[in-house]
Design a protein around this nucleic acid. Structure first.
Ligand SMILES: [Mn+2]
Ligand SMILES: [Mn+2]
Ligand SMILES: [Zn+2]
Ligand SMILES: [Zn+2]
Lengths: 138, 138
DNA sequence: TTTGTTTTTGCAAATCATTTGCAATGAGAA
DNA sequence: TTCTCATTGCAAATGATTTGCAAAAACAAA
């Protein structure tokens, strides 16, 4: 709440129930959640789905959450640590959707080469792995 | 057409005008196209948008096109070469949407490590780079 | 060619995720 | 407590993609 409070205050933003509740949910989930999952995890009637969509945009702008795309049409969000920039990847089971966090990223060098080679600036990347998890294999 | 013909025949599928037209468009475009872009590139009234969506699914299943996701909500497709498996990446300008083809992929080793380390099978990955192109920088 | 069977297509309606208008409500400053 | 602006709920709007269904087109067989 301290982080939320200070960051929100610096943006002429208000500390509201929905925002605190959403961050609470995110804080206790290790993998990215969709807006709908956050909605479902919230005590019923706690807030509207539209409010969650709006909150996620705000939190994303403020760098408090990171948006991920597993290609199934629904955006997913994960809380970003205090000092961390949140950059990391995932390994997703194409059968059961189990998610494994991949903290390492050895692509930064390749990224730089590609940026330099093509004259692009502020280059970033999105990378996700897909496969069949151990349990779904048999 | 020969490739289309033989591949379609082997799937109890028919060689239709729309399918040939779509492949024609794809063949003369070096970067991935959205369904709507394919629709727009087609001679007016040549076929319905729904038919394009259905065709892309079919062509994807047959491995004749590869689906890409630049995160803007619209799927994009690119023709896959005869023997090629179509795996590659892109560098996309976040301002003007210019696309640069990135043929190399030095992530396959990392991919294997991740697959082995987590017991996942048939692991693949999706990777796209984003940045600001030279022209948009100034 | 004509026929018979199966796949495709066009069109409109349905889905789904996400966004937005607007009036009512809430938070924080004074 | 009051005032003002941000925020929310609700419903309607969007935009991409999918789907039901009857008509049209492919193709193989005759
Ligand atoms: Mn994660
Ligand atoms: Mn490409
Ligand atoms: Zn990375
Ligand atoms: Zn790759």
């Amino acid at each position: 709440m301290s982080a939320l409070t200070s960051r929100l205050r610096g943006h002429t933003r208000k500390i509201t129930g929905p925002r605190q509740a959403i961050l609470g949910i995110l804080r206790r989930h290790p993998h990215p959640l969709t807006n709908k999952e956050i909605f479902a995890a919230l005590p019923r009637g706690r807030c509207d789905l539209a409010t969650i969509y709006r909150s996620m945009h705000l939190l994303e702008e403020m760098g408090m959450v990171k948006r991920f795309d597993f290609g199934d049409g629904a955006a997913r969000f994960e809380l970003v640590g205090e000092d961390d920039d949140g950059h990391h990847h995932h390994l997703v089971c194409m059968r059961c959707a189990e998610v494994v966090e991949i903290e390492e990223c050895s692509i930064r060098e390749l990224e730089e080469q590609i940026a330099a080679r093509n004259g692009f600036a502020t280059v970033t990347h999105k990378l996700e792995f897909f496969g069949i998890c151990p349990r779904c294999q048999r």
